[in-house]
Amino acid sequence: MKILIYGYGNPGRRDDGLGVLFAEAIQSWAADSELDYICCDSNYQLNIEDADNIAAFDIVVFADATVEEAIEDFKLTRLQPSAKQSFTMHSVSPEFVLDLSARLTETPPEAYLLHLRGFEWDFMAKLTDKAASNLTAALEMMKPLLSSAEEYSLATTVDLLNNYCR
């Protein structure tokens, strides 16, 4: 089984870097724990080439900052493919990446989005205290899930992740 943690956002814009910092923290932890089935990647935003990048994995967990007030700290959701696109024009959603991957490859991964609540978006490479706390909480939730995948089948791991989806 291969799992990709893909964080996106701009770490130079304060809490917008939550997704990237999550991926970097998982990368460091997975290396120390010798969990070589976990790979990590990050970028400013998602784009169409990510449809190919995720195709080599069984499970992908995207991590992104969110402004949604309904999310107190973080939330994991299971992604469904979707062609919906915004006027932003130069980036695409994780659902779009998943949909494109499904169309162009034979084995699209199971995909999830970890929404990490952020608060400030200034030009600064430092999280707010509240965002840093949310990052810590999300890491504490995800690490046991990811390490347990070493023992379980893909189906079981997906079930475990689904149980944490809200």
Partner: peptide, 17 residues
């Protein structure tokens, strides 16, 4: 013109029309 309407903070930058 391929304008850059979206700056760096993508979390704030989702843009319905």
């Amino acid at each position: 013109y391929d304008p850059c309407l979206s700056c760096a903070t993508h979390a704030l930058g989702r843009m319905p029309l």
